[in-house]
Amino acid sequence: MPRNASTILKLIALPLLFFSVFFLVPLGVVLVSSLLDKSSAQPSLINYISILADGYHWEVILTTFRLGLSTTAICLLLAYPLAWYLVRIVRSSAWRRLCIIILILPLFTSNIVRSFGWMVMLGRTGMVNDILRSLGLIERPVRFIGTELGILIGLVYILLPFAVLSIGTALSRMDKSLERASQDLGATSGQTFFHVTLPLSLPGVASGAIMVFALAVSAYVTPALLSGGKVTVLSMLIYQQYSTVFNFNYGGALSIVLLALTLTLVGIANHLGRVRGER
């Protein structure tokens, strides 16, 4: 074996071993468990049939992915202007670093703590309702806790930094000479943005969208706390099967369904983006 090939193999051996032990093996265990009938311990598709034939599960699945898609869309709409401000408008490196620190600082705090904070702020006597009343926008408190809106607010707050950092990285690596060339050829600022800047930043937008969507549909703490027991998502059902019902086979099937649906939607999005890029 050539020395270069041997060196490369040694370098990737440890990451491959780590990936296999801590991802592929647990995933395989969950998959095998999902294909076993709890009562007979025999191979069976009964768990998947029960999930797909139950209207309640489909309602939970739709709720989960509706929240995931809504969170992704809102995060992207908020993240692009924030990333643009940090990369293109801020001139002071010290101020930019401070803004980035403020942006990522919540990531060092537990999701549980942040979710409890939102429970206080979104309560009937919380800060959000107080502000809305003081502005004359509402006459009586709005119920956020126990609604999809409350969960959506919490998820957007927690996942927004991932989208901002991803889009900001794409914008910072962009060749600005292409934008100057577009303007030199007579394009307006708006035309340059929509025909040059935005298409070139789409890889950052896509990676940010994938991260936010994957984290949103698999989130447990935020939906569990902000739902008030009135909204159920797939991660909550999975947790119940493992910790309360102790039906590991059914919980494994729910996990595989969540993973399969997530990968399917991400794959469709990647395919559509590739087709659009080829055009």
Rank of each mutant, 00 (worst) to 15 (best):
R3G: 13
A5L: 14
A5M: 15
S6V: 15
T7F: 10
T7R: 15
T7V: 11
L14G: 02
P15F: 05
S20I: 12
L24D: 06
P26F: 00
L27Y: 01
L27S: 02
G28F: 01
V29L: 04
V30C: 00
L31F: 00
S33E: 01
L35A: 02
D37E: 04
K38A: 04
A41P: 12
Q42P: 02
Q42T: 05
P43D: 07
S44N: 03
S44A: 03
S44R: 01
I46D: 15
I49H: 03
I51Q: 00
L52I: 01
G55Y: 01
Y56V: 02
W58I: 03
E59Y: 09
T63R: 08
L69K: 12
T72F: 07
T72A: 11
A73I: 10
I74A: 08
I74P: 15
I74L: 13
L78V: 05
A79V: 13
A79T: 15
A83P: 11
Y85N: 08
R88F: 07
I89P: 06
R91H: 14
A94H: 04
L98S: 13
L98H: 12
I100C: 14
L103K: 03
I104S: 10
L107I: 09
F108K: 05
N111W: 15
G117E: 04
V120A: 03
N129K: 02
D130N: 12
I131N: 09
I131S: 10
L132T: 01
L132Y: 04
L132Q: 03
G136K: 03
L137F: 14
V142N: 05
V142K: 11
G146S: 08
T147V: 10
T147R: 03
G150Q: 06
I151Q: 09
I151T: 02
L152I: 08
V156E: 05
L160S: 07
P161H: 06
A163D: 07
I167A: 08
L171D: 02
S172A: 12
R173Y: 14
R173N: 14
M174A: 08
D175P: 06
D175K: 10
L178R: 15
E179Q: 04
R180D: 08
A181G: 07
D184Q: 11
L185E: 09
T188M: 02
T188P: 01
T192P: 01
T197H: 06
L198V: 03
L198T: 06
L200V: 04
S201H: 14
L202C: 07
G204P: 10
V205D: 05
V205Y: 11
A206N: 09
S207D: 09
S207H: 04
G208T: 05
M211Y: 14
A214D: 09
A219L: 11
A219N: 13
V221A: 02
P223I: 07
L226V: 13
S227G: 09
S227I: 07
V231R: 07
V233W: 08
M236Y: 13
Y239E: 09
S243P: 13
T244F: 07
F248E: 00
G251N: 00
L254D: 00
S255Q: 00
I256K: 00
L258T: 01
L258F: 02
L259I: 00
L261A: 10
L261Q: 09
L263K: 03
T264R: 07
T264K: 06
L265I: 14
G267K: 10
A269R: 01
N270S: 15
N270D: 15
L272E: 05
R276V: 12
R276F: 10
E278T: 05
E278W: 13
